[in-house]
Design a protein around this nucleic acid. Structure first.
Length: 575
DNA sequence: GCCGTTTTCGGCCCGACTGTTTTCAGTCG
C-alpha cells in the first residue's frame, strides 16, 4: 500500500515525464497541483475506499483514476506508458541542479544519456564539447551538480534545519546593516522535513548583505549570486537562499517566500480575477497601475480580501476559501502551553537528573509538568519499578517547593502486545498521568495493532497515548492501524492523543491530527525530552498542531491544572 | 487536466539569476 507521500512522488514523476514528452504546460502542472494536494490529505487508502479522493482540490476524473490505480496496485497505466519511452534512471539526471526537463530530454534524445553514469561518462569523454549552447561554465556546473547529487542527504528534518537557519542568520546579522531578517519557506510553515532553507531580509544595502552571505565560510559553493538574492550550498547539499528587499516590502517579501508554492499559485489566481498581480514586489492593480506594498503579511491578505492565514496552514488545500469567509480559527500557540506531560530523567533513559528537569521545566514558566520515566518493561534493562516510583515522588515533592512548579507523578508505560499495560492497575492508580506507548512488538498486523491501541484507550488509567503512529525519521515509518477506529476510541474514552515534538518523531503527523480532531479527540503537545535542552521541542509539537488546525481548547496542556486533573478524573470515574 | 462570487468553456502566478543567445530560453523557487 503506497503512502500519501509515495503517491505524491509518483504523480510528480508523471508530471516530469509528461513535460519531457512535450505535453502541454497546464496538463502536467495539473499533476503537480494534485501531488501537493495528496501530500497534505488524510490517508489516501481510506479516501479511495470511500471514493472521496475526487473531492481533493486539483483531483478530477483523470488524476483521480491514476491515484486509485496507484493506491491499489502501486503503479498506473499512464506511468507505465511513460516509462516505455523514458527510463526511470532519467530522474537521476534531472536531480542534477541546473538540468531541467528540456535539457534532459535533449541529452536523452540526441546523446542517449539516460542516467547519471551516462552523463558522467559523456562529460569525462568530452562528448559534449562543441555542442551549441553548452559552454564550459555549464559543464562545470553540471560536474559540481553531480557531486552534490551524490552527496545529498534526503530532506532535512525540521529541527536540524532550524538550527542551521539560526546559525546562518547569526552570521548574516554580523554583516552590513539590515532591518529585518527571518526564515521563511517550509521551515516557517513547520513542514516536518525541509528541502532547503529560505531566508528573507530587508536592508538599504541589499547587494552588500547578499555578498556577505555568499561569502559565508561554511558555504561549500555559491549557486547563484545577484544584486538581491543568492543561493549557497552547505556540505551535504543543503541549500540556503537569501533574498533582500527594501523594508517597506517586508510583508510582501515574507508572504512570497513563505509559500507554499501551491498556496501562492492559488492566491494569485484569485487575485488575477480581481485584476491584481501579486508578487514579492507588491500588489499591482492592473486597472489603476497602483502598487500596494505591505509592512506585514496581514496587509497582504487584507488587500486580497481575506484573513491572515497562519504559515502552517498555507498548504494550498482549502485555506484560502476559509480565509475569505473569515473561518480561520485562532490556532494554539506556544505561549498557551502551561505544562509538558512527557519527559525523562536519569531514573530511566534521560541524560539529566530529576532536579535538573524540574528546574528546567519551572524555568520555562510552566505551571505544572509530568516526569514520565519509562516503566520497567519485560525487555527493558532500565526503568521504573513501583518502589522507585514512590521514591521519585517523594523527591519531586521537595523540588516542587524549591522551584515553584507542580510535578505530576507519571510514567510512560509500555503497551504490551495484547493491549494490556506494563504496570498492574493498582500501580497505575497511584500515578496522576499515564502515557501509554507502543515500543515493542511493532510489527503486528493492522488488526492486532488496532485492537491493541483501542484496548489501551479503554484502560481507565491511561491519560495519553504517546507518539501514536510510532514513526521515526531515522529508521521507522511506524506501525499500521485503523486510524478512524482508534481516534473514535480515544474520543469516546476521554484519552488524549499525543503530538510528540521530539526531533525524530513529530508524531502524530499533522494530517492525522487534523483527522483525529474531527472525531473530537483531545491532544497533548509534549517534548518527550531526554535532557533539559530538549524541553523546547514542545514548540515543534505546537507547529504540527497548528498545521492540523488545532485551537487552544483542543489541547489538554493548554488548560489550567485543575481542568487537567478534572479531565483525568472524568475518565477514571466513568469507567 | 482542473475549475467557477463574471465562466461547464476558456482560461490557467510571478519574478530572479545564469550562460553565451546579440534578445532570451532554461531553471529554480
Amino acid at each position: 500500500m503506497l503512502s500519501n507521500t509515495q503517491v505524491a512522488q509518483k504523480l510528480l514523476e508523471i508530471r516530469t515525464l509528461m513535460e519531457m514528452a512535450g505535453e502541454s504546460f497546464y496538463k502536467y502542472m495539473a499533476y503537480e497541483k494534485a501531488a501537493a494536494s495528496v501530500e497534505n490529505a488524510p490517508p489516501l487508502a481510506d479516501l479511495v475506499a470511500a471514493d472521496e479522493h475526487l473531492k481533493l482540490p486539483g483531483v478530477g476524473k483523470s488524476i483521480g483514476s491514476v491515484i486509485e490505480q496507484l493506491v491499489r496496485t502501486g503503479s498506473a497505466d499512464q506511468l507505465d506508458a511513460l516509462h516505455e519511452r523514458f527510463p526511470p534512471s532519467l530522474l537521476e539526471v534531472l536531480g542534477v541542479s541546473g538540468i531541467g526537463t528540456k535539457t534532459a530530454a535533449t541529452l536523452f534524445a540526441e546523446y542517449g544519456i539516460a542516467s547519471l553514469a551516462d552523463l558522467e561518462t559523456a562529460i569525462a569523454a568530452g562528448a559534449l564539447a562543441g555542442v551549441p549552447r553548452l559552454g564550459n561554465k555549464t559543464i562545470e556546473n553540471w560536474r559540481r551538480g553531480i557531486l552534490a547529487y551524490k552527496g545529498r542527504q534526503r530532506r532535512t528534518p525540521l529541527p536540524a534545519a532550524l538550527a542551521i537557519a539560526r546559525e546562518a542568520m547569526t552570521y548574516v546579522r554580523e554583516g552590513p546593516p539590515l532591518e529585518r531578517l527571518e526564515f521563511a519557506g517550509s521551515l516557517r510553515r513547520a513542514e516536518v522535513t525541509v528541502g532547503d532553507i529560505d531566508l528573507v531580509c530587508t536592508s538599504h544595502h541589499a547587494a552588500d548583505v547578499v555578498a556577505h552571505f555568499a561569502a559565508w565560510p561554511r558555504a561549500e559553493a555559491v549557486l547563484a549570486e545577484g544584486p538581491t538574492k543568492a543561493s549557497i550550498w552547505l556540505p551535504g547539499g543543503l541549500q540556503i537562499d537569501l533574498r533582500v528587499l527594501p523594508d517597506h516590502l517586508y510583508g510582501n517579501l515574507l508572504q512570497h517566500f513563505t509559500g507554499s508554492r501551491e498556496h501562492n499559485i492559488k492566491l494569485r489566481e484569485q487575485a488575477v480575477r480581481a485584476n491584481l498581480r501579486v508578487s514579492e514586489n507588491g500588489i499591482l492593480n492592473l486597472e489603476t497601475g497602483e502598487v500596494v506594498t505591505c509592512a506585514d503579511e496581514a496587509g497582504v491578505y487584507a488587500t486580497l480580501g481575506m484573513q491572515l492565514i497562519p504559515p502552517e496552514l498555507r498548504s494550498g488545500l482549502d485555506e484560502i476559501e476559509l480565509a475569505r469567509s473569515g473561518l480561520i480559527p485562532p490556532l494554539v500557540e506556544t505561549a498557551d502551553i502551561r505544562g509538558d506531560f512527557h519527559m525523562h530523567t536519569t531514573w530511566s533513559d534521560g541524560d539529566d537528573t530529576l532536579e535538573a528537569m524540574i528546574a528546567a521545566a519551572a524555568a520555562r514558566g510552566y505551571e505544572y509538568h509530568a516526569i514520565s520515566d519509562h516503566s520497567q518493561g519485560r525487555a527493558r534493562r532500565y526503568g521504573m519499578t513501583p518502589a522507585l516510583l514512590r521514591e521519585q515522588r517523594g523527591l519531586a515533592d521537595e523540588f516542587d517547593t524549591r522551584y515553584g512548579i507542580r510535578t505530576l507523578c507519571a510514567s510512560e508505560v509500555d503497551i504490551l502486545p495484547d493491549g494490556s499495560l506494563d504496570f498492574e492497575d493498582s500501580v497505575l492508580a497511584q500515578l496522576e498521568v499515564v502515557i501509554a506507548s507502543v515500543h515493542i512488538a511493532t510489527r503486528q498486523s493492522r488488526e492486532e495493532m488496532t485492537a491493541r491501541l483501542i484496548r489501551a484507550c479503554e484502560n481507565r488509567y491511561v491519560t495519553i497515548i504517546g507518539h501514536p503512529t510510532g514513526r521515526r525519521f531515522d529508521h521507522s515509518s511506524g506501525y499500521e492501524f485503523d486510524y478512524d477506529a482508534v481516534f473514535a476510541a480515544a474520543a469516546r474514552t476521554g484519552t488524549a492523543l499525543e503530538i510528540d515534538g521530539q526531533a525524530a518523531r513529530l508524531d502524530l503527523p499533522a494530517p492525522l491530527a487534523r483527522k483525529a480532531k474531527s472525531f473530537g479527540v483531545t491532544f497533548a503537545l509534549d517534548s518527550d525530552a531526554h535532557r533539559t535542552g530538549d524541553l523546547a521541542a514542545v514548540e515543534f509539537a505546537v507547529g504540527q498542531a497548528r498545521r492540523a488546525g488545532l485551537v487552544k481548547s483542543d489541547v489538554l496542556n493548554a488548560r489550567p491544572l485543575d481542568e487537567v486533573l478534572a479531565f483525568i478524573a472524568r475518565k477514571r470515574e466513568a469507567a
